[in-house]
Amino acid sequence: MIQFSIYRFDPDKDSKPYVQDYELDEAKLDGRQMLLDAILLLKEQDESLSFRRSCREGVCGSDAMNINGRNGLACITPLADLKQPIKLNPLPGMPVIRDLIVDMEPFYKQYRSVKPWLMNDEPEPEIERLQTIDNRKKLDGLYECILCGCCSTACPSFWWNPDKYLGPAALLQSYRFLVDSRDKATNERLDELEDPFRLFRCHSIMNCVEACPRDLNPAEAIHKIRKLLLARSS
């Protein structure tokens, strides 16, 4: 039997959250190895258990949750690596809608605020804006972000100031457009970041790097933004 301790909260019924224990017969997994497979079977036992999931292969980012104290995606977390009872909690610091489902809006608002799209007023070429191979390489390690929220919700600076600090995910995206050779709004983007809160609440705690299920490095991207600001001012 696999043991679970899962955070439960239904605002319609419960006055406060509680932890519910579950057991799952390993035979039912039938060879499936990931945590999400087990949670889906738990939902067959107790259909009131709520969580998000979609692609079940680490691409959509819906099933981000706090697994034994660390943020990660249930669908790509092998059950064999987890100590029992497996403790599942919603992403820390976010408003809980129900059980493991959190309101991602504070996270998305910060993401939107970095204007995550190409800004370029130059006349459009007939087919597409080309990049050199070297310029394209600068986007590696940045464009892969799936916006699951594991990094930002693992960041103490984001916990204390989710309304003012952009958080690692939004800053990684910000750098992705700062460094894009086709984007012409670098100066405006940097202006928006030069503020005690939006960028400089990062204290290089590095939880973001540890949490990222895609092995990206938001802390490094943030450091590169600081270097861009420094280069611009000197």
Binding site: P95, E105, P106, K109, Q110, R112, S113, P162, D163, K164, D191, E192, E194, D195, P196, F197, R198, L199, F200, R226, L229, L230, S233
Partner: peptide, 20 residues
């Protein structure tokens, strides 16, 4: 707004302080 996004503040001291 409890969890809205704040506007950029008027202070431009972030970078200078970080460097110092």
């Amino acid at each position: 707004m409890a969890l809205g996004v704040s506007e950029r503040g008027s202070s431009r001291s972030g970078l200078g302080e970080w460097v110092v």
